[in-house]
Amino acid sequence: MAVNNAKIYGVEKYIDFVVGDFLQLAPSLKGNVVFLSPPWGGPSYKKMENFTLNLLKPVDGYSLFQVAQTIAPNIIMFLPRNVDVCQVEELSWLSSPPLNFEIEENYVRGFLKGVTAYFGNTGY
């Protein structure tokens, strides 16, 4: 689906699609930006008032972020609407040096679906 969407928007020549286990491939990857959309643990995330980064699977959000930092200086994370935003922001200042941080809410037909967090110089 990602390849199809890239073709629709005319950006496929700017993207290298790699299919595989992110955690296994990460040591061999280098880039400018890493986009992460980790599993939220199924529909049960909706019932939680405060979704924490340690609930992401197969690894927690902190570990996932550290792996992404070995690939690129700029990271984008798509997370559940009920994620603990303070924890997400914490990722930016735990980095050395601290990263620029911006967060946006993503709505579909007036319903808050998720949030996108931008770290580094991602052009937000």
Rank of each mutant, 00 (worst) to 15 (best):
E12L: 13
K13Y: 06
Y14K: 10
I15H: 04
I15R: 05
D16H: 15
D16W: 07
D16M: 03
D16S: 12
V18P: 05
V18K: 11
V19I: 14
G20K: 06
G20C: 09
D21P: 00
L23D: 02
Q24V: 12
A26F: 10
S28D: 09
K30G: 05
G31N: 03
V33W: 01
F35V: 14
F35I: 13
L36G: 05
L36R: 01
L36M: 08
L36I: 09
S37R: 03
S37Q: 04
P39R: 10
P39Q: 09
W40N: 09
G41V: 13
G41S: 09
G41Q: 06
P43W: 07
P43S: 14
Y45Q: 04
Y45S: 06
K46L: 13
K46A: 15
K46D: 08
K46W: 01
K46V: 14
K47Q: 15
K47A: 15
M48G: 08
E49F: 00
N50L: 14
L53R: 01
L53Y: 01
N54P: 00
N54F: 09
L55R: 11
L55A: 11
L55Q: 09
K57C: 14
P58E: 09
P58S: 14
P58F: 09
V59G: 05
V59L: 11
D60A: 14
G61L: 12
L64V: 06
L64Y: 04
F65G: 05
F65P: 00
F65Y: 06
Q66F: 03
V67L: 08
V67R: 07
A68V: 03
Q69N: 10
T70W: 01
T70G: 07
I71S: 02
I71R: 04
A72C: 08
P73I: 04
N74D: 03
N74H: 10
I76C: 13
M77R: 06
F78G: 12
F78H: 13
L79I: 15
L79M: 12
L79S: 09
L79D: 02
P80V: 14
R81L: 11
N82P: 10
D84T: 11
V85F: 00
Q87N: 08
V88M: 06
E90D: 14
E90T: 13
S92W: 01
S92Y: 02
S92L: 02
W93E: 02
L94T: 07
L94V: 02
S95A: 15
S95L: 01
S96M: 03
S96Q: 11
P97A: 11
P97K: 07
L99Q: 08
N100Q: 12
N100K: 15
N100G: 11
F101M: 04
E102T: 10
I103L: 13
I103C: 11
E104A: 15
E105R: 00
E105P: 00
E105F: 01
E105K: 00
N106F: 08
N106K: 00
N106L: 13
